[in-house]
Amino acid sequence: MRDGLLDPRAVLLHESASGRDEAIRRCGRALADVGAVAEPYIEAMLERERTISTYAGEGFAIPHGTAAARQDVLRDAICVVRFPEGVDWDGERVTVCVGIAAAGDGHVPLLAALADVLLDPARARTLREATEVNHVIEELT
């Protein structure tokens, strides 16, 4: 796994958001704060979400930008932002957002690990309920 892909500073486990768009902005901000994306990427994440939901099952969404917004990705990175009270996501309830910034394929192993977690309800629940940053990182790497 590439160093810096999942920066502990981009794992935020006690956030709240009034809705989907605010949750996505929080993810975009987390990616910008660790230097992974330039500012316009955040709007592109909202634009991408409006075309097709990134809801991935088990209370997880994987917001990311558009193909055109790759130019605003400074390095491949992932953020994990947890909303313990849940966020309404076009009728689904999302507890964890795994935000993606990818110019290349550096994030592929982490998303493969996430897919394994989401297909195992017990592991998905453990990750949804995780309150320690290192537990989240262990589960996904």
């Binding site: 097709i52 193909a67 998303l111 297909l119």
Partner: peptide, 18 residues
Amino acid sequence: ACDAGMGSSVMLASQLRK
């Protein structure tokens, strides 16, 4: 195939590969 090729398609492709 997905819109950006960086999210959902990556997850599904990883599962299919396996």
